[in-house]
Design a protein around this nucleic acid. Structure first.
Lengths: 203, 203
DNA sequence: CCATTTATATAACGATCATTACAAAATTAC
DNA sequence: GTAATTTTGTAATGATCGTTATATAAATGG
């Protein structure tokens, strides 16, 4: 193995904690002292492991994509277009109100908290969000190629609409909406989903 | 009139400028130096006029409600339930992409930028947002009493859904969506609006 | 057992933070 | 014209910001 004194903390758990703190307070309002205190380590250990504040935040972003936002990738694997959207919105409702995390969506909340000190970070957060919409759009294009979507339906339009509702649900969660409230929004959205290939919408 | 040296700056213009700075940078990332520089005044003048940073932000909130978000009150005065929602979403699309202001919605953006230094301010921002939904809900309840909404439609559900789409549009605008993009979302939403009293949906 | 390597804890760095003393300037009241 | 009042510009307050220099502790390699 490599020589040197072994690291005294679990780096993955540290990132988990940092994600929670950033999520709750926002990027600019989170101080390095907040982070080191919550993570139970000293500043030099943090800088050695993550470079700087922005580096740690980027690790938290990755962690969010794999954890609370992991449903995006899973949803795309559903068999039909409607199943994909249904799974995505239901999973978002659950994730946005998961009691293990702050209410809402880390990506939706974070962008506005960066300020203008790191414009590149802000752009990368937006890039990540738009990546989610692109994922759904491509899946719906696939559905159309499979004959799973009526010819007049535009995958771009559908994806943009569905993601917009998902964004809005994140704000609703931040406003204090419950899982039940969000499920109601999902049901309402699906009830009026404009596809002839409509299935049952009960959970 | 009252004695004393006259104020050398326009207080309404100062609030306008502060709103723009807060909107663009977020609450925590905006420094008093940022504000005084943009407003063209010195710190003591700012504190004499607005109390402190939070006081100035609250003035900016009020300014936003009367200005860029003034369409909310106007929309409620439309004759039918569908007209109300149509007007609201179209006006939101215009406001969220108004080139005179940062992209998106000041209220949607701001809440997450406050941090935890002023929990009361955060709650008041959320209160303001929920106030918009309450406004629409009451208008739709009125519509139902007027026989303008089918009996099976729930005003609470309808209002929550419409406001959720509006929130989502604010995030889309922050992501870089154009007025045209948002109008497409509005058209899509109205096209599937679940009321038998549907009218023409072209702009 | 000693050299090397990496992580640790303590303490400090200059910069910036929100806020305010202080005194000069500019107005009204009488 | 002088007293009272309010705003102004300058400069400073202590606190906190993100980051790092330094020295010690704990591991491996030979």
């Amino acid at each position: 193995m490599t020589a040197g004194r072994p690291r005294s903390f679990d780096i993955d758990k540290a990132v988990d904690i940092a994600m929670n703190v950033f999520w709750r307070k926002g990027y600019a309002a989170t101080s390095m002292a907040d982070l080191t205190k919550a993570m139970g380590i000293n500043a030099p250990s943090l800088y050695a492991a993550f470079g700087n504040k922005e580096g740690l935040f980027r690790r938290a972003m990755d962690r969010y994509a794999e954890g609370p936002a992991g449903f995006m990738v899973v949803s795309m694997q559903q068999p039909t277009a409607l199943d994909v959207v249904t799974h995505m919105l239901r999973a978002a409702a659950a994730s946005h109100t998961d009691p293990h995390f702050p209410a809402g969506c880390f990506m939706v909340q974070s962008e506005s908290t960066v300020g203008d000190k790191s414009e590149k970070l802000r752009r990368d957060i937006i890039k990540q969000r738009n990546g989610g919409e692109a994922l759904l759009r491509k899946r719906l294009e696939q559905a159309k190629a499979d004959g799973d979507l009526p010819a007049q339906m535009d995958p771009t339009e559908l994806a943009r609409y569905a993601v917009t509702v998902m964004y809005g649900m994140a704000i609703q969660a931040a406003n204090g909406a419950s899982r039940k409230d969000l499920d109601q929004i999902v049901n309402f959205t699906l009830k009026n989903w404009p596809t002839s290939a409509k299935r049952k919408i009960n959970s």
